[in-house]
Design a protein around this nucleic acid. Structure first.
Length: 979
DNA sequence: ATCCTCCCCTAC
DNA sequence: TAAGGTAGGGGAGGAT
């Protein structure tokens, strides 16, 4: 983190020092020597166990540094007040940030202070083996010894480390130290603002907010990936088994009967208590009684006189509960926090960020929970929801509170940090319960107590409700102070709330204040936007300077898009410009102060992640917005409307090339106003990606044992959990299995007409016979799938589906007539907002609706068709449809197009390849392998004689591989002959 | 009436 | 000094 300190000042306590500090250190050590010789006479020399051992103590230890110093002296060791590379043999610390570790020399050992006390207890020098905190200190220390620019390269470095709490250390710096990497020395500048080439990197590395947002995404991805791993499911089974065998049940447990019927859901919300502080003190928990905050500033000058006091505008990333007691809050300026502490004669302890530690604790937190269940929705690095329903059924009659206390205990052991958990019958109640539980506690809103509980909740504590929304409410009722749910219950009707807050927010507010929340866990994560925003340190004089920075931003954005394998079709740029009446420099150093914000977006010609293209468009947008460069205080670039990039995408974006589907001749008319509300923000569900990754002809619903790898492997979030499936009552299961049977697997056993019949029949059975009563008997997960399927079906009656790919394969054969008209390529060819509904519907089947009221959604869905008004059944004969590409279905047409495409450019466009590949796979899916063979051979024929088509050949190889894979899947391992 | 764009709000 | 990022939901109001 701060390892490559850019500052010349020793403000964080870990920057380099100069001659001044060297001199001071010498002086202190002389003093210590004197102390030793003088005081040692007073101090009884008890042993020589530390003969030849010298230590440096970092930070807070138990016992404290003073005591350790005394102990060293009593037992023949040496204590150094300052770190010195050539002298220290042991580095005593209970909590060492990674930044400091990086500065240790190769043989340094970081040892827990307990080693010293234990040695004394045993009266011998113990091996440090069990006390070492970081074994691999030398790893990744990078180039710190390289290329010294000034002064004595080989001279032992004096003061890499200093005593963090010493008082007068940041007054001087000196050019004599040389530890840092050359680049920082080169430009003699601190990385102050965005003009500095390293600004972005430095800033992001240190930004807590960046940490929070990036780790939140990372955790969502992590959980999702874990869900795909069969071996993890085995681990869970093992862990559950262990738990079941070891727990001793209490009387309370046996009284817990709710889960005897499966109807009642139990959610848990769990998060770490004051995460950053807990992590920073995890090896010195005894510190936690005093007020502690995490800041970049050390805030050392605060305790001096009131006059001329420096007022730090460093924001608190986190404060512990001892600090909150004085009114200190997260996000507050350090100066203010110090003020509050001073008012209470309390001393505020400022600790630095320990990003490495955050990662470590966060990982362990997640690992612990995930070892019991995958019914998890990740919220952030230290917070998540769990659907405990199934787990508790398994552990029956274990009481939820018993389970959660066991879990929390395990988390405490694994992370050395406390956490709190709330439980309730919905996610809202669970979340509010957590608030009630904090710190370090748990709370269960039991059945029957929901109303009582919700009524007393503060409105501001409701998730999604902030001061702004609260103000709106308050303004409507000037006569009373509105602050609890109860008050809203009494004061406002649903209509009234909708009037005040708008339709959706009004409904949400109404539901929440009544304790209603029908959301279910969002388990499949698909990003809707990827962006980068910097609103700190933005100071430019010229547009050129800005352009240089834009380049960096765009590269970073590109990196993120690549990493997420996303390409977007809509780019938007946001700027913050100093408000006319705001001072040029705000009170916060390099802050943005009060700004006027504005944004512009552009719909791109094609899906892209290409930095050059993005940069170009960004600059264009910026130029559209009139602003004075010198007044720019913040900038953000955001990509939306994704076509999820394909897994095997290697290609760059080929913008500017004439591409297959840019040609008007190939363009299908845009589906006109068939778009449905909110379609646009749901983006592209990337059918081809999903399909290829988890081919749907695999059988998610067979009754094979859950452990069977092939089956677990192909379980996807959009499909029904096999475990759930096995728990269904037999008749229902059969129905659902049939209903879910996908066309290719069915058709392997049946003739085509049989197949249609089977599918239609099973569909009808499921849809018509699973009435609401039955539906309610189903596990919620299943219920959701069915509900979605019903919705999907309704929508399809109005809007024809595109293509043959579905996460839930039920819709595949349903509307062949419509399929004939269009195909999956539309998805990629037309702007997303113009896509027919099915695209979105597909997605909705795979992503749980995350809303407060499912009913609302259903009602608001633009499809008004009722269940009885099912769409007309397709004519069987029309099932023999041909997939089409760019509107063509005839082999000769497609061949012609293929040739034109190949001739159009020496560098193919990946998107086109993706489209083409999808088409071929569609052909395979409709049992037209012959045509696939013809087309691939034809393509190869076109390419082979031309050396200029090397890129094409590469792409073609990939394509052939994908096609072969699909072919093998369909025809039991046989490979298509393409020689 | 239904969209799209440009915001604003909230959360971690 | 200080590191005020980002994703997502949704409303207002103009365009269609």
């Amino acid at each position: 983190m701060a390892g490559r300190g850019n500052s010349h000042r020793g403000d964080n306590g870990w920057s380099e020092w100069g001659g001044y500090m060297a001199a001071k250190k010498r002086k202190l050590e002389e003093q210590f020597d004197k102390d030793s010789s003088n005081n040692a006479k007073q101090l009884e020399r008890k042993s020589n166990i530390f003969q030849g051992i010298s230590i440096f103590v970092d930070g807070h230890t138990e016992p404290p540094a003073d005591e350790l110093k005394k102990l060293m002296m009593e037992h023949g060791g040496v204590y150094h007040a300052y770190y010195s590379k050539d002298k220290i043999t042991y580095f005593i610390s209970n909590n060492l940030p990674y930044a400091k570790i990086r500065k240790l020399k190769p043989n340094d050992k970081v040892v827990n202070s307990k080693w010293i006390t234990d040695c004394i207890k045993e009266n011998k020098l113990l091996s440090t083996h069990n006390y070492e905190m970081y074994k691999d200190v030398t790893r990744s220390r990078g180039q710190t010894e390289l290329n010294f620019k000034r002064a004595e390269p080989m001279k032992p470095i004096t003061s890499d480390f200093n005593v963090p709490n010493s008082d007068d250390e940041d007054d001087h710096s000196s050019p004599s130290e040389t530890e840092e990497a050359p680049t920082e020395d080169d430009d003699h500048l601190s990385v102050l603002d965005a003009k500095h080439p390293k600004f972005l990197e430095t800033f992001l590395k240190r930004s807590r907010l960046h940490y929070l947002s990036s780790t939140a995404v990372a955790k969502k991805v992590y959980v999702q990936e874990l869900r795909q791993k069969p071996e993890h499911r085995q681990l869970i089974e093992k862990r559950r088994e262990e738990l079941k065998n070891t727990i001793q049940r209490t009387e309370r447990d046996y009284l817990f009967k709710i889960h005897d019927e499966k109807k009642e859901k139990i959610y848990m919300h769990i998060d770490m208590d004051c995460f950053f502080v807990s992590v920073a003190t995890r090896h010195q928990p005894e510190l936690r009684d005093q007020p502690i905050v995490i800041t970049h500033s050390k805030g050392r000058k605060a305790a001096t006189t009131n006059e001329h006091q420096f007022y730090s505008r460093s924001e608190l990333a986190s404060c512990n509960y001892a600090a909150r007691q004085y009114g200190i809050k997260n996000g507050m300026y350090l100066g203010r926090a110090q003020e509050l502490c001073r008012n209470h004669q309390a001393k505020l302890l400022c600790l630095p960020y320990d990003y490495e530690g955050f990662h470590e604790v966060s990982d362990r937190f997640y690992e612990t929970i995930l070892s019991y269940t995958l019914e998890v929705e990740a919220v952030s690095c230290d917070e998540l929801y769990v659907d405990l329903t199934d787990l508790l059924i398994y552990l029956k009659p274990l009481h939820p509170l018993t389970f959660v206390s066991l879990l929390r205990e395990e988390i405490q052991i694994n992370t050395k940090c406390p956490c709190s958990a709330g439980m309730g019958s919905n996610m809202l109640l669970a979340r509010l319960a957590t608030r009630h539980a904090k710190p370090n506690g748990q709370y269960y809103v039991e059945k029957g107590y929901e109303q009582e509980f919700i009524a007393k909740q503060k409105l501001i504590d409701l998730p999604g409700i902030g001061s702004s929304i609260l103000d709106k409410l308050q303004q409507t009722f000037p006569q009373t102070t509105v602050d609890t749910c109860k008050q809203i219950q009494n004061l406002c009707s649903l209509e009234q709330l909708k009037n005040i807050l708008g339709k959706k927010q009004g409904q949400t507010m109404y539901d929440m204040t009544h304790g209603i929340d029908t959301r279910i866990l969002t388990k499949d994560y698909l990003p809707k936007s990827i962006s980068i925003d910097i609103n700190y340190g933005i100071r430019f004089q010229t547009f050129d300077e800005l352009t240089v920075f834009i380049k960096q931003l765009v590269l970073e954005l590109h990196k993120r898009l690549k990493q997420a394998r996303q390409k977007g079709k809509q780019l938007s740029v946001k700027i913050r410009v100093r408000a006319p009446d705001a001072p040029i420099e705000p009170e916060k150093f390099m802050g943005c102060g009060r700004t006027d914000d504005s944004s512009r977006l552009v719909n791109l010609h094609s899906y892209t992640d290409d930095p050059i293209n993005i940069e170009l468009e960004t600059i264009k947008l910026l130029k559209q917005m009139n602003f004075i460069v010198a007044d720019l205080r913040g900038i953000g670039i955001s990509m939306t409307q994704f076509q999820s990039a394909l897994k095997n995408t290697s290609g760059k974006d080929m913008n500017g090339h004439r591409t297959l589907f840019d040609c008007n001749q190939f363009r299908l008319p845009k589906p006109s106003s068939t778009t449905v509300g909110n379609q646009t923000d749901t983006g592209e569900p990337s059918e081809s990606f999903v399909t290829r990754k988890r081919p749907m002809q695999q059988e998610p619903t067979t009754t094979a044992v859950p452990q069977k790898v092939s089956r677990l492997d192909c379980y996807t979030p959009g499909q029904i959990d096999p475990h759930v499936m096995n728990e269904l009552p037999e008749p229902i299961r059969q129905e659902v299995e049939q209903y879910l049977k996908n066309p290719s697997s069915v058709s392997r056993q049946n003739s085509e007409s049989d197949r249609i019949e089977v599918i239609e029949k099973s569909f009808t059975q499921v849809m018509d016979h699973l009435d609401e009563a039955v539906l309610n008997e189903l596990p919620p997960e299943m219920r959701r799938e069915i509900t979605m399927a019903q919705k999907l079906r309704k929508m399809e009656s109005k809007y024809p589906p595109i293509g043959g790919k579905r996460l839930v394969p039920i819709s595949v054969p349903l509307n062949p007539v419509a399929q004939e008209k269009s195909n999956a390529f539309n998805v990629l060819m037309n702007s997303p907002q113009k896509q027919p509904t099915t695209t979105t519907t597909t997605k909705k089947t795979s992503i749980p609706v995350k809303r407060w009221r499912t009913e609302t959604i259903l009602n608001e869905e633009p499809i008004t068709t009722t269940t009885s008004n099912v769409r007309t059944e397709p004519k069987p004969q029309s099932f023999h449809h041909q997939p089409s590409i760019a509107g063509f279905t005839l082999l000769s047409d497609v061949k012609l197009m293929l040739r034109e495409w190949i001739e159009s450019s020496d560098e193919p466009n990946q998107i086109d390849f993706d489209l083409f590949q999808n088409y071929l796979i569609d052909l395979l899916n409709s049992y037209n392998a012959e045509m696939v063979h013809q087309l691939v051979s034809y393509g190869l024929l076109q390419l082979k004689p031309l050396t200029s088509k090397i890129q094409w050949m590469k792409h073609f190889q990939n394509l052939i591989e994908a096609v072969q894979t699909r072919f093998r899947q369909m025809y039991g391992g046989v490979t298509m002959d393409l020689s």
